[in-house]
């Protein structure tokens, strides 16, 4: 049984009499400790799936199960302790007027977990930030450092599942490499399950075992990592994404 099971998920936004279907009956399953990637152009609904899992998007059809159980609405504390999300833009996802210490200790306070001091220090260590950063504000950090804080925050409650929404698209190439390495190391150390969204096929290929290609809110094709590397996609759309990938330029 898969850890994350999504069946026929549909998400429709309604406002002022108009409705937009962002996701239309998409099904996917992610095994425990697996890393699953969602790719597609903007507006294909890949981020909406992550938001729907967290209860941040209006689900209009289908089911979401974590570990076999339907997710409750509202999601509640037990869900937060199992599933956490890292957002795309570290400039926008951290509270500008909270120090790192406050950002990192808030989940502990909400969940009534003690040893705040030790846990915050440990969290900074885990993501490779100096402990002297503890009382800094987000604006005093670089983009890569901020994304490390966002990852540390997501890991404060020791979740099993991390939902990663374009975690490196706002970062420079060298900082992207450091962040991807950090995520991979944490996944091995803690046995995490990743569900990751990116528009960069090379990043998805580096991070994920299986890949779902999406277009206009629908699933187009599911590929294994081997299929992608050997260009064995069956649909034209997946092929066009593959050939438009900037990475192709490096092929001899």
């Amino acid at each position: 049984m898969a850890l994350i099971e999504i069946e026929n998920l549909s998400v429709t936004y309604r406002s002022k009499g108009r409705s937009v279907t962002a996701v239309e009956s998409v099904s996917l399953g992610v095994e425990a400790r697996q890393s699953f990637g969602l790719v597609g152009e903007s507006g294909s609904g890949k981020s909406t799936i992550l938001r729907a899992i967290c209860g941040l998007a209006p689900v209009t059809g289908g089911t979401i199960r974590i570990g076999g159980d339907l997710v409750p609405t509202p999601r509640g504390r037990a869900f937060s302790a199992r599933v956490q999300m890292v957002f795309q833009d570290p400039y926008a996802s951290l509270h500008p007027r909270h120090t790192l210490d406050r950002t990192l200790s808030e989940p502990l306070a909400i969940h009534g977990i003690g040893q705040t001091d030790a846990r915050v220090m440990q969290a900074l260590d885990d993501v490779g930030l100096p402990q002297s950063f503890r009382f800094r504000y987000p604006h005093q950090l670089s983009g890569g450092q901020r994304q490390r804080v966002a990852i540390a925050r997501a890991l404060m409650l020791r979740p099993e599942i991390l939902l990663l929404d374009e975690p490196t698209s706002a970062l420079d190439a060298s900082v992207q490499a450091e962040t991807l390495n950090l995520l991979n190391r944490l996944r091995t150390e803690r046995g995490l399950t990743f569900l990751m969204v990116s528009h960069d096929l090379a990043v998805i290929d580096h991070m994920c075992d299986r890949i779902l290609v999406m277009q206009n809110g629908r699933a187009v094709e599911e590929l294994s990592r081997q299929d992608l590397a050997s260009a064995k996609m069956k649909t034209d759309y997946a092929r066009s994404l593959f050939s438009a990938s900037a990475d192709r330029m490096l092929e001899p």
């Binding site: 060298s174 992207q176 490499a177 390495n181 990475d247 490096l250």
Partner: peptide, 20 residues
């Protein structure tokens, strides 16, 4: 060279990406 090498590649090895 460092900038080029730190980019992941489709079908590339799963080792940690080299930093700069």
């Amino acid at each position: 060279q460092g900038l080029l090498n730190c980019l992941p590649r489709i079908g590339g090895p799963r080792q940690p990406l080299p930093g700069l």
